[in-house]
């Protein structure tokens, strides 16, 4: 059971190469973090895993518990168990948060089956309480007028409601103050499970103080260039990415 990325190469529609052969396996039960300088391809990796259509996969594949995602659309991948927490979540005017999450859950049910409304709200409120989100957020349009921190909490709320097998969090810590970061981390930690793998994409060690990763990887110029344990993040915090500029040791 793992999310396995094999030699993944992807370009933009104009041919610009972004991912140049990424190899990474996230077994269920583990949390992996990817760090790396701006422009290294971290966010692109998260979008390509989700199936974003602006990127063309030119080689390699992604296996979800052994199932190749290549031919699956964005929504099929989501229903198969991939969740992407967005760095910049979109606003959906006129669609209430409660109806949005409900539509996402409904999409996972067989045709003709309906969500049980009472059970749904009970579950929604439990998770909102854990994320310290006011009940008024159920009726507000998705992310509209939300602060940066509220948007990120809302991503985690959706993640908790959809219970994906593999979670990818794209810079969930950016724009969060320390209190909001702690709350978000509480939500993510509550999702830790032997059946679930997670990939945290971040610039900062700070997030990893609150969500302890099992493995840390460094991405640069479209490849994973270094992997290690949690101590690697501390090392990066200390020394930055300068080592990337040195000639690679063969």
């Amino acid at each position: 059971m793992s999310l396995k990325i094999n030699n993944l190469q992807a370009t933009l529609e104009n041919g610009t190469e972004i991912l140049k052969g990424v190899n990474l396996e996230i077994p269920a039960g583990e949390i992996h973090a990817i760090m790396g300088p701006n422009g290294s391809g971290k966010s692109t990796l998260s979008k390509v895993i989700s199936g974003h259509e602006s990127y063309i996969v030119t080689a390699g594949n992604i296996l979800l518990d052994g199932v190749d995602l290549s031919e699956m659309s964005i929504d099929e991948r989501s229903r198969a168990g991939i969740f992407l927490a967005f760095q910049y979540p979109n606003e959906v005017p006129g669609v209430s948060n409660a109806n949005f999450i409900r539509a996402a859950l409904q999409a996972r049910l067989p045709k003709g089956e309906e969500i049980d409304a009472v059970g749904y709200y009970k579950s929604l409120y439990e998770k909102m309480d854990l994320l310290e989100m006011d009940r008024k957020f159920t009726g507000r349009a998705v992310n509209e007028g939300f602060s940066g921190g509220e948007k990120k909490r809302n991503e985690i709320l959706q993640m908790m409601m959809l219970e994906p097998k593999y979670c990818i969090l794209d810079e969930t810590d950016s724009g969060l103050d320390i209190d909001a970061l702690k709350i978000v981390a509480k939500g993510v930690n509550a999702m830790r499970s032997p059946d679930r793998g997670m990939l945290l994409i971040t610039h900062y060690q700070r997030l990893l103080d609150y969500i302890k990763p099992d493995h840390v990887h460094v991405m640069s110029e479209g490849r994973i260039v270094k992997s290690g344990g949690p101590e690697l993040a501390l090392e990066l915090e200390e020394n930055g990415y300068d080592f990337l500029k040195e000639p690679a040791l063969v």
């Binding site: 989700s50 974003h52 259509e53 602006s54 964005i74 989501s78 996402a104 999409a107």
Partner: peptide
């Protein structure tokens, strides 16, 4: 497309 992507990434066709 970005608006659609967000909803699709939640499993909505």
């Amino acid at each position: 497309d970005e608006e659609i992507f967000y909803l699709q990434a939640r499993g909505i066709d």
